[in-house]
Amino acid sequence: MDHFPTSWGRPRNEAYDAFNTYPLHQRPNHSKDVFADGVQRTQQPIVTGTSVLALTYKDGIMMAADNLASYGSLARFKSIQRLHAVGNSTVLGASGDMSDYQYIQTLLDELVIDEFTANDKHDLGPAEIHEYLSRVLYSRRSKMNPLWNSLLVGGKKNGKRFLAYVDLLGTTYSASTIATGYGAHIAIPLLRKAIEGRENTLTEAEARSILTEAMRVLFYRDARSLDKFQIATVNDEGVSISETITLETAWGFAEGIRGYGAQTQ
């Protein structure tokens, strides 16, 4: 997956602009589409959120996302919440377009209310929420009018943990640790090393520290990230989303490196 939401769902072109030198919200596109004059609907992401990270541990799943919503390269909204509880056994994490995400939130809240008012002793678990979202996103991509997001759905219901991904194309998958955006490149190697094979023994405290460390690495390297983030946990006790956590960072190492610190010449 590409680092930038603006590039998602676009034809890949490694030969052009390999270093992402253009502003995030104005990616160039030189391809000519002869049918383009006829239709005008497909959007681009405007206000975007960066990576979401998630992992499974002994008692459930854990998810993290920072509190930033960017407008291109501008850090526009610095206390946005990108983790959302759906019912009482599911959490949704969103990257990509934040207005599309808020639309998805209203869809889900309606769905949960409908399910509640039915009062039939059934409620939607993470698997059902994920299936629903994958249908919504796939049908929107099939109408050539996508919801420009990469979403993680995690939860625990009837003792079963669930963690899965769905994006603007309707692509889905599940794994013991998943990340979107830049996290898929930078955090996933760290998370897989820490988690694969230890899904059933990892404690909540260990999981929390692994996620925090991954968020710190992302903050150091992802220019569209923030040092303020939240962690959501779903276990047998239900969903809990933490208060904002501020990362401790140290920049002393930059002093001696040309190109990092303030240089005198």
């Binding site: 676009r10 502003p23 160039p28 497909t42 050539m144 194309l169």
Partner: peptide
């Protein structure tokens, strides 16, 4: 690309991967 609306820009959504 300069972010202005002076010249029309062609965007394309690729529904496949």
């Amino acid at each position: 690309p300069d972010g202005s609306f002076a010249h029309p820009q062609q965007r394309h959504f690729n529904p496949y991967t």
